[in-house]
Amino acid sequence: MDRIGYAFADGFTIARRNVIKIRRVPEILVAVLVTPLMLVVMFAYVFGSSIDVPGGSYREFLIGGTFAMTLIFGATFTGVGLADDMQKGVINRFRSLPITQSAVVFGRTASDVIYNVASLAIMAGAGLVVGWRIRTGVADALLGFGLLLLFAYAISWIMAYVGLLVPSVEVVNNASFIVIFPLTFIANTFVPSDNLPTPLRIFAEWNPVSAVTQAARELFGNIPAGTPAPQVWSLQNAELYTLLWSAIIVAVFAPLAIHRYRRVGASR
């Protein structure tokens, strides 16, 4: 096998180990499956029952935002996983082995895609039960799921960097909450961004979370009839804007995370 082949094999071995943990660690199972299920059902009935959207169903409008928010929060797992491995000394073991060193971080982010696929599947199932429907075709729907997963993958590289930067799992959780909560709420995830106060509206309009949500809604056919077309480029071209942001985030944070991984022993 050549170097790249080995790198993939190493990444696969690490990812496989992380996936085994879904069955062993109840916290992971809850975070990957139970919490997303709960969020879909809760949002659908609490908000979805009390807010009317003219020309459509708020419950359907809501689901794209719930998917986006849950998957982005799910990226915290990447950071938590790496911080945990560092705290427990597993990273030191990996670093003493003759493997492709970036494989540990790549394997981590790859296994988190699997976590996210599981979360998305359970959310989609729950969504269908509470009345969400895909009103487009299979290709559009798959593209919608794909964009959500891609954007979550990009965010998990930010979290990988954070996880390797900070000393403990608790710090990762707090740091991620401080960043992700405003990012997913000052957006069109739960309410249309048009009615927000101007500074927040501008932030929400250019927030990539809004774009990925908008893209998912369009691709699932969940934009209520009669909704005015978006006024800003980012939301008019939501798919492209999401792809751009995902590419930029990975291009910046993957090298940062890998560089950091190579140095974790040095500063501790």
């Binding site: 062993r24 660690v25 427990k88 597993v90 030191n92 073991r93 003493s96």
Partner: peptide
């Protein structure tokens, strides 16, 4: 002491 095995595996 600090190169560990994975306790969940």
């Amino acid at each position: 002491q600090y190169a560990a095995v994975d306790e969940h595996l």
